[in-house]
């Protein structure tokens, strides 16, 4: 990582941290122009600046003059109800001749002037960060996993690539498609569409390497674990592994139970647990739902409270619906 990071030195900008602070101040929702001769005065007095901005009237545009001893004066230079262009014109008129730094914040916008000119050296850098954040904002949270699973299922049904990956030219599921391949399909999709960290083979028990859960997600706020299983009827599958549907659902739940207990023992909080079942057989949707419910009812007496505190549902993905385009 370090040589990669050091490469960034030649494009670095000496006003970047001040710009970030400006965005923070802009979130206080007031119209303020901070003027100072030396950049150091800003960080040295940030506490007082924050307190005064919070106290300042929303209806006015304020000018804070910062010097060596802190906030030297605070005057009102206009009314904040003016539109954005009028605001820029006002700032320009008043501070064009000022040779020091002007930090300007108003209604979510923020920028800097130095020696009467708006600082544009940072523009590319700030735009890049904004674009990256916009992209991230399209990703979902862990709490939205049910919706993400639906979207994944739609992708499987309508995007050719999934069908091509799993089925051969005669319409049979390829022999190489097993739990690992299916798990990776789901994991790739989750990584692209959910914020945060998506890991596979996450170890739930420090002392026993075998106790690893298929997929683990952490979006910075909440965490989820997913146990992936599959059940393909022989007539649709070239591989040799055959697990009856209901049995496999039961295996998934029991395994989730084991992980939930291990995690609880180590006080490692997880908020959601799912069993994800890829299947291909002749059962109807209603029969599938019934089988899941029956298995759940059958296992209920032996499953732990840790399981029940995290288990949300069993999600199914029927490969027979993966149509060729």
């Amino acid at each position: 990582m370090s040589s990669d990071f050091l490469e960034k030195a030649k494009n670095s900008n000496s006003l970047i941290s001040e710009h970030k602070i400006l965005e923070y101040l802009a979130n206080l929702g007031k119209a303020v122009v901070i003027t100072l001769d030396k950049l150091d005065y800003f960080s040295e007095n940030i506490l007082d600046i924050k307190i005064e901005i919070e106290k300042a009237a929303c209806s006015d545009i304020h000018n804070f003059v910062i010097g060596e001893s802190g906030i030297e004066s605070q005057i009102v230079i206009g009314k904040s109800y003016i539109n954005e262009l009028e605001f820029h014109n006002l700032v320009d008129r008043k501070f064009k001749e000022y040779s020091g730094y002007c930090f300007v914040v108003n209604a979510g916008i923020s920028y800097m002037m130095h020696d009467g000119e708006i600082d544009s050296s940072i523009e590319g850098c700030l735009l890049k960060t904004k674009t990256m954040q916009k992209l991230l904002n399209t990703k979902k949270n862990v709490s939205d996993l049910r919706e993400v699973f639906e979207n994944f299922y739609s992708a499987c049904k309508y995007h050719d690539s999934y069908h091509q990956y799993c089925f051969d030219s005669s319409g049979m599921i390829k022999a190489k498609i097993k739990e690992l391949e299916l798990r990776n399909l789901l994991q790739d999709y989750l990584n692209e569409n959910v914020k945060g960290d998506v890991q596979t083979e996450f170890c739930t028990d420090y002392y026993n390497d075998e106790e690893s859960v298929d997929i683990y997600l952490n979006d910075g706020i909440q965490r989820a674990i997913i146990e992936v299983k599959f059940s393909f009827a022989k007539k649709y599958y070239r591989g040799n592994t055959y697990y009856p549907f209901a049995t496999r659902i039961g295996d998934g739940m029991k395994q989730l139970d084991k992980y939930a207990k291990h995690l609880a023992k180590g006080k490692r909080q997880v908020d959601f647990g799912y069993v994800y079942m890829f299947y291909c057989n002749d059962f109807t949707d209603i029969e599938i739902e019934e089988k899941i419910k029956e298995k759940y009812d059958e296992l209920k007496p032996e499953l732990s409270k840790d399981f029940f505190s995290i288990y949300k549902t069993t999600v199914t993905n029927n490969l027979r619906n993966w149509a060729i385009s």
Binding site: Y24, S43, G220
Partner: peptide
């Protein structure tokens, strides 16, 4: 202390929660 922390928060609160998680995991 508060002055230092406000400045620190001023910078880091610009990043969303998932990014802060990534910063943690990539901290050398």
């Amino acid at each position: 202390d508060l002055n230092r922390i406000i400045y620190f928060v001023g910078v880091i609160s610009n990043y969303s929660e998932d990014v802060v998680l990534s910063i943690f995991y990539n901290e050398p």
